[in-house]
Design a protein around this nucleic acid. Structure first.
Lengths: 342, 342
DNA sequence: GTTCCGACTTGAATCGTTTCACAAAAAGGG
DNA sequence: CCCTTTTTGTGAAACGATTCAAGTCGGAAC
């Protein structure tokens, strides 16, 4: 039932024309009260639901915003999505969240899908390092905003978090606590974030009069708990073991913590640990983890707002949109894992 | 640019009719090779992208499946989404994931949105206990499948996990390890899952010749880490403290673990802990957590498949769709937190 | 009584596809 | 060379909403 009640059926049932029904829905004030009531009752009686596709077809674009993230399993992106959704909803838009799982192919596929959907715009954390997907997508003329990436030219907006600052915050904190021999569990050195955070760490060291050899780097294959456990084991084997470790990511930090726990090493007594991202589970660890918090929800919301601003000026008064490059500041959250033992 | 290249523009550029262009796209084998090549080249040259909305309008329904979950922050649902997406993609459908955040109002809003979108079907974990939203949605004639809920009548399919069995697995394991005095950190008793898991726990106890008083219940406000920490504190205050605790959820278990750690109570020596869900962070805890694993990805995939089956028979040969009620089996994953100390 | 205005309402055109009955051309068969 | 198939290509009619120029009507103004 309700198989396909169209605006025409409503019009017939209410004894008016289709134009009037459309007006009742979109500009109710332009319809006489009596007529409006009759139409509304007919709508209700027939269970009419307007068809988005028909509206879209006429309007030329949909009321949906695309969001393409690297990894839905990462709480960071879940928060980004939350923020984006909130902002989009305030503008009456829906968000379609897709997960490229770091694969350039899937990214291309989803972007094509977005283009066919004629989405209003796309929020994107690129998976394809070559930028080919983005180039191809640009042809469609659909506006997009880079998330957690800095745009290198002025062809689009971007919203990111200052990773250099984040790394500096973490290491400054450790140095202030008296640590002089540190380690950096870094993850894959190919990642921008990883490199930026190290740059910040070194900066903080040098500000304290320490050289780069005060920071021993332990790269890992991936940014997950298993890799952290692994790095922890390597850490234990080091001669002149560092007294503090900065991890590029909370998952790594949790892994290190686990390794220390298994080996009976006291945290923070024998080893202080600082993570990155401040995921929910950082606070939930057996020894709550000090971490650098990224304003993920804000990031998502801001990205969505920039996108909305862009689409509005584009369709609007002709005043050209000014692309912006927003860089948010991270924040250190101190917990037990890095407290100075007394 | 590419502002709106329609099928008509392609047809003109290639010197053929619109019907032919459509054929090239949808039934390429029905077009002579030479013509096809000409059309394809025109498509490429003009940067033509077909409009989903127009297709949808014609077809009467979109190529999207809706998924409405209770909490995107919960890794369980993220996995459900992953499974659903995989299954949907194999059928050429996209998934639109929305988060009701346990609010009946938001649920209603998203369901209305799905109806307007004419989605192919909806996977739903209801937030509205009254069932009013579902009733209203049913009128649209859009098929849906309940996820992580058992349908009580035969009007729809459902896919869930056997919580009674899960509770039994957990407690049997503890009893087998010699524990005779247990606790159940249960979360809000209003939740079905919470009740079912307790039923299972009691069953396992009685199978071992123990009465219900061997299981002290500690309800909490919510299913999160803070509540777990809280329950842990209460646990410590109990006279004749239990030697093992079963938690309705891994977050609770992590909270309990944290409390034990802060109090210097040895886990599993003085207190064994079993959680539920086997989220990624259960294995990542300082003391890896024994947990009852739910096949979340399978759950999502299966739900999507049932939905697809339903939509196919509905539009297809007239053979009516048989609603199914699938109940998957959970699985105990033993880790250090419940090992018998030796 | 005529004119004009404002408030409502109408209905046709439009958006970009898909589909389908039909036409045209090519390929066989005799 | 004519007739029958088969293969290709055509173009108009949907799909369901929105929009807008044009129309109707009742009443106010002169």
């Amino acid at each position: 039932m309700a198989q396909s009640v169209g605006i025409k059926d409503v019009a017939r049932a209410a004894g008016v024309s289709v134009g009037t029904v459309s007006n009742v829905i979109n500009r109710p004030e332009a319809v006489a009260a009596r007529t409006r009531a009759r139409v509304l009752s007919a709508i209700d009686r027939l269970g009419y639901v307007r068809s988005e596709s028909a509206r879209q077809l006429r309007a030329g674009h949909s009321r949906i915003m695309g969001l393409l993230v690297l990894d839905m399993g990462n709480p960071f992106f879940v928060d980004v999505a939350r923020g984006a959704e909130r902002a989009a909803r305030e503008a009456g838009l829906g968000v379609m969240v897709c997960n490229s799982a770091q694969s350039a192919d899937e990214e291309a596929e989803y972007l094509a899908h977005f283009a066919e959907q004629r989405v209003r715009g796309v929020l994107l954390t690129p998976a394809d390092a070559t930028g080919r997907n983005i180039e191809a997508f640009r042809r469609h003329g659909i506006p997009f905003v880079l998330v957690d990436r800095v745009s290198d030219d002025t062809t689009e907006c971007s919203v990111s978090v200052d990773d250099v600052l984040g790394g500096a915050l973490a290491v400054r904190h450790l140095v202030d606590a008296g640590h002089r021999s540190l380690a950096y569990v870094s993850g894959p050195p190919s990642l921008n974030q990883v490199r930026d955070r190290r740059t910040g760490a070194l900066k903080a060291l040098s500000a304290a009069g320490l050289g780069p050899d005060a920071l021993r780097e332990l790269p890992t294959e991936r940014l997950d708990v298993a890799s952290g456990r692994d790095a922890g084991a390597r850490l234990l084997g080091l001669s002149r073991r560092p007294t503090a470790v900065f991890c590029a990511n909370d998952l790594l930090a949790l892994g290190v913590l686990q390794a220390m726990f298994a080996a009976g090493v006291d945290v923070p007594g024998e080893l202080a640990i600082v993570g990155y991202d401040d995921i929910e589970f950082a606070a939930a660890a057996a020894i709550p983890l000090t971490s650098v918090r990224q304003p993920a929800v804000t990031l998502g919301a801001l990205a969505a707002e920039l996108l909305l601003a862009e689409t509005e000026t584009e369709t609007g008064d002709g005043q050209p949109h000014e692309h912006r490059r927003v860089i948010l500041k991270p924040e250190l959250v101190v917990r037990r894992s890095s407290l100075v033992p007394r």
